[in-house]
Computed example of a mutant assay.
Amino acid sequence: MKIRIKGNSLRYRLTRSDTATLNSKGYLEDRSDFGLKTLVYAIAVTDDDRLSADYTGDTILLNMPKSMVVELMETEKVGFEDQNGPVSLLVEKDFTCLDNTGEDQSDNYPNPLLVANKS
């Protein structure tokens, strides 16, 4: 799972195993250790019908409806977006990059642009 924060925009990118974990366990988290403090970013599956987010202590928690998790797993849907007060929320599949990168992308979703170029 990756996050990107830019101004009042929060974007989560999920690999195939991330969505599978969310589907089976209902919760996913990762951490960035800054020495004396740790930033925790997580997603919790809810019965709500909209994305929402909370920031408490050193934790950013995105609340994601179960139906959205299932749709990411079972369809070609790329992602979901919503507004939580002043914050724009986006959750999307993490696709393999089009350029060469040193990052392990074996768990990423196949990039639709690469698949289209092979046809």
Rank of each mutant, 00 (worst) to 15 (best):
M1C: 07
M1T: 01
I3V: 14
R4N: 09
K6M: 09
G7N: 11
R13L: 12
S17M: 05
D18R: 02
T19H: 00
A20S: 14
A20K: 08
L22I: 02
N23F: 11
N23L: 09
N23V: 02
L28H: 01
E29F: 04
R31I: 09
D33E: 12
F34I: 06
F34K: 04
T38K: 10
L39Q: 01
A42M: 05
A42L: 04
I43C: 01
A44E: 13
A44L: 08
A44S: 14
V45M: 06
T46K: 08
D47S: 14
D47V: 12
D47F: 08
D48Q: 11
D48K: 14
L51R: 02
S52G: 14
A53P: 01
D54W: 09
T56S: 15
T56A: 15
G57T: 07
I60T: 01
L62S: 01
N63S: 13
P65G: 03
P65T: 01
K66H: 09
K66C: 02
M68V: 04
V70N: 15
L72I: 07
L72V: 05
E74L: 09
E76Q: 10
E81Q: 14
E81A: 08
Q83E: 15
Q83H: 15
V87P: 00
L90D: 06
E92C: 12
K93S: 00
F95E: 02
L98T: 09
N100K: 10
T101A: 09
T101Q: 10
T101K: 09
Q105P: 01
D107A: 07
Y109T: 03
P110S: 05
N111H: 00
L114V: 10
V115D: 12
